[in-house]
Design a protein around this nucleic acid. Sequence first.
DNA 1: ATAATAAGTTAACAGTGTTAAGTATAAGGC
DNA 2: GCCTTATACTTAACACTGTTAACTTATTAT
Lengths: 205, 205
Amino acid sequence: MGSKERRGREKKELRQVILDAARELFLKQGYENVSMRKIANQIEYSPTTIYLHFKDKVDLLHCLCHETLSQLVKAFAALSQDMKDPVNCLRKGLRVYIEFGLKYPDHYKVTFILHPDHVDQPGQEIYEQTAAISEEAFGFLRLIVAECVRRKKFRKVDVETTSQAIWSAAHGVTSLLIAHHEFPWVEKNKLIDHLIEMLIKGLKA
Amino acid sequence: MGSKERRGREKKELRQVILDAARELFLKQGYENVSMRKIANQIEYSPTTIYLHFKDKVDLLHCLCHETLSQLVKAFAALSQDMKDPVNCLRKGLRVYIEFGLKYPDHYKVTFILHPDHVDQPGQEIYEQTAAISEEAFGFLRLIVAECVRRKKFRKVDVETTSQAIWSAAHGVTSLLIAHHEFPWVEKNKLIDHLIEMLIKGLKA
DNA sequence: ATAATAAGTTAACAGTGTTAAGTATAAGGC
DNA sequence: GCCTTATACTTAACACTGTTAACTTATTAT
């Protein structure tokens, strides 16, 4: 009867329980310092149960990554609805991006810092999915920059080059703050704001 | 007599052999995928011999970073001799930094990208050394930016914050060009120049 | 020659990701 | 009801990992 549906639902629930436990542990202790056994202990199942829901440890991280990337895209989508002030939209978008990275450093690492060739094998489903959603996210930046140029808020720069340069800068501060936390950084919000304003001033008409 | 010196020299030689093997393996397979046993196999010694020269695996990575940073510092030192046009000096310095990364992507990866966050344990000798040489390299950038502000080529920005923001941007484009080779980048020199000019325009008085 | 020192090794510990084989339990057909 | 079959989950094991302690071998100094 409906028992099949119930079992399928229970399976999905356990899957989510694993994802939640894994995310919490990854964020608290770092991906490398969390073992499958630790996750299993947390949810009070045997280690091998995880393998009934995920191919391996990397797959687990990728699913988390996909979850959070989707959130990033959603945040961008919400932002680009209101394009009355495209420059401010860009400002907010960059903030969202950088803070996303700082909030989910492990996810950011896998998606944007680690050599994708090491982690992903092209052709794998999860790889294509991640690539697609990344492209979708970058599309928002391209859109906003184009709007800034179209409305002559920015001087007549090449949209693609500018978008890539802006992404580079945003990625730079995000990844450095994540990876080199031993460096004597100035107050992080001050640094981020300064970088963003610098970029925008460098583009203004 | 001189036998003590010879033994000391032989010890240093083996140390360098280990470093070279480790760098090659780290670059080819990634830090996490290279075991002490793999390194030991490569140099045809037992795994524990490495521990006679390095405290642990992280120490090994730190020493490699130190080597790379020294090279970069030397390049910067040559540049900052001629400070007649500080803005152009900054331009050139950024070019040197980015092209250093693109020319020696392996070195750059190990030092600035691969750098795992659990590596840093304040109090350790090698930590202090790496921190010192990083500070030295960064000092050149700080110096140039300060000079730009002092001579009123730049508006009155905070030197430290600006320097950190500039480094972030330079690191961003370098690491992305290295790591995300599959992304449809515009012509790389165009991208680099555009970013540099954007930064400088955003700072000009 | 003998004692001391250093270099390098072997064996082991406690941990890792992952797989194959086994067990209990629930579902479906008769 | 009973039997078969599929599912959920566990146990045990494999081949690794970084690292330490104890041991052996070789070289030096007295």
